[in-house]
Amino acid sequence: MSEQTGSGGGLNEYIQHHLTQNTIQLGGGGFHIDTWVVSLVLGLIFVLWFGLAARRATAGVPSKGQAFVELILEFVDGQVKDTFHGDRSSITPLALTIFVWVVMMNCMDLLPLDMPGWLVQTASGSEVAHHTYFRWVPTADLNTTFGLSVPVFFIILYHSMKAKGIGGFGKELLTAPFHGHGFVAVILAPFNLLLNLIEYAVKPVSLAMRLFGNMYGGELVFMLIAGLLGGSLYMFVPGVVFNVAWALFHILIVLLQAFIFMILTVVYISGAYESH
């Protein structure tokens, strides 16, 4: 969400300003400090929150905080149970981490866009805020979504090898989906390998691009509303109304995208135990 527009640079400059990452050069490439800081802080909050809830859990009447954590855990475990029919001891924690962490990162889209600049300006008493770049939403950064999906990809490979063995996994890559015998199998092997590699590669790409596209689009809508309706005093009320309306709808996107990322991860892991 946004409270105010930029300092007179027009809609294009306002949007460009808020689409710019706080970046430093590291290892020959750009490192997005804002994405890293927000992701790390939210991850630590999640670990601390659920860790304290687990330590303080009681067998009697639960507190409101414990009941809320248990509700989330039961929801995630129920989804995993319906999708994955094996040992859930490692799958449910993974799904829980993905769901809660992604929800928390997505929810940053509901904070005012101009808050970092306003905080800097308030603290410094200068116009340096106009040159302050800080993006709240880690999942609107493609680096974050691929940072989540690539480990999921390796987890899928691990479960595939665990279920079928390294030899069985390699054999499946060469013999499925087109099965054959003798010379025919040799001819089909390169095509099978290519199709399987594409199938595996598509999984992390689709996970990353779906989450990024929806969160980037939602962030852009907030910027457009702020830029078009927040430039003058008489547009303040319409701006607030449109922002609130979009924020209420966007809450559904925030939750749905986290759920989709989680459930597809579980589906892919479940598929690793199935043969072609």
Rank of each mutant, 00 (worst) to 15 (best):
L252S: 12
L224V: 11
A189W: 06
A57L: 07
S39N: 08
V205Q: 07
G27T: 06
I269N: 00
T97H: 00
L96R: 11
L193T: 13
H130I: 05
S124G: 00
G165Q: 03
T35N: 15
I91S: 05
L96D: 05
E274T: 07
F46I: 09
W49D: 14
F31V: 10
Y234M: 05
N243V: 01
G182K: 03
V80A: 02
M105D: 14
V150N: 03
L157V: 14
S7T: 11
G230E: 12
P112S: 06
H18S: 02
N12I: 09
P204Y: 03
Y14I: 05
V61S: 11
N192A: 09
I251N: 00
N106D: 11
Q121G: 15
S2E: 10
T144N: 09
K164Q: 13
R88L: 05
A245F: 14
L252Q: 07
K164I: 00
A95S: 07
S149M: 01
L142D: 02
G147V: 02
L193M: 13
F249K: 04
L73V: 09
I251L: 15
V100T: 14
Q121D: 15
A54D: 12
V69C: 14
V254W: 02
F236P: 02
L229I: 03
W101A: 12
N22V: 00
Y234F: 10
L52K: 10
G10A: 09
F222S: 12
L174E: 05
P238Q: 12
Q16K: 13
L252E: 06
V37C: 06
Y234H: 13
F50D: 05
G86A: 13
L113R: 01
